[in-house]
Amino acid sequence: MNTLIGMIPSILMIVSPILITAVGGMICEKSGVVNIALEGLMGVGAFAAAATHVLLEATGLGMPSIWISLGIGALIGAAFSAIHALASINLNADQTISGTGINLLADGVTIFAAQILFSADRTREFKMGMQTDSLGIYPTAYIALVVVVAAWFILYKLPFGMHLRACGEHPHAADSVGINVKKIRYIAVLASGLLAGLAGGCIVLTQTIQYTSNTINGRGFIALAAVSFGRWRPIGVTFAAFLFGTAQAFAIIANNFPALRVLPTEVFNILPYVITLIALVVFSGKNYAPRASGKPYIKGAS
């Protein structure tokens, strides 16, 4: 039992970025835009944060460097997601194609930039990452908590949130009562990019010491799964992120448990994906997804 309690900080460390990204993905889908680029957006955010931190650390800036780096990571994530916003909101593009393109582009851009900045296929290592508090918990856990609560409050308690959800359910109705569908969708897509970039920074500053092409390793797609499995609601998405994050954590720490050592660690890696698939089948028929999600909004057409 003690080992289990001792694991909580590392589980929180792994859950937090997945949760932050998933909340972003949820907001985006609630407004009617599917964002499968979360993986790539996390990548550019993680790279930007790692690179900024390495460069600022060298100037002797100290701890503020961490927070500046996180901010830069988030901003770069948002900037990159603008491509997706432009394609899917203004140009009625296929959102899956645009998302795939951004994922491929992110793979190239991050390592290309590392080659230019550090002459290697990864960023230079930084000396000091984020520090834990007295309980052994990284600040990223508190950031994730704030993000979830804020998202819930905005989506369900503020008029803006209701407008946003209306855009995802029935954009024509929203438009007819004077809601600016395109503007709201823009805000939602940029928010998802911001959060994915932030989460990428959280991963790189807590879990490793540099950005490599393996840093994100499918966690953006896990977040995407968490959105579906959590049925597009903050509480469900939080639960899903915890479930999946814990499975991921077990892949790393299963060795501490003799009973689990007999299983290949890959079994825990597979869990989130299999659970999501089963859940999608079990809950099929009842459609929880925002109705207009993934469909471009064309004024006047119905």
Binding site: I83, L91, A93, G101, I102, L105, A106, G108, V109
Partner: peptide
């Protein structure tokens, strides 16, 4: 030349294909 430029070109091609819906508009 960083070899990742080829990934960038491939990614750009897909993004531009997504944007080709602009042509229809």
């Amino acid at each position: 030349i960083p070899k990742e430029i080829t990934f960038i070109i491939q990614g750009l091609i897909v993004v531009f294909i997504a944007l080709r819906s602009a042509i229809a508009l």
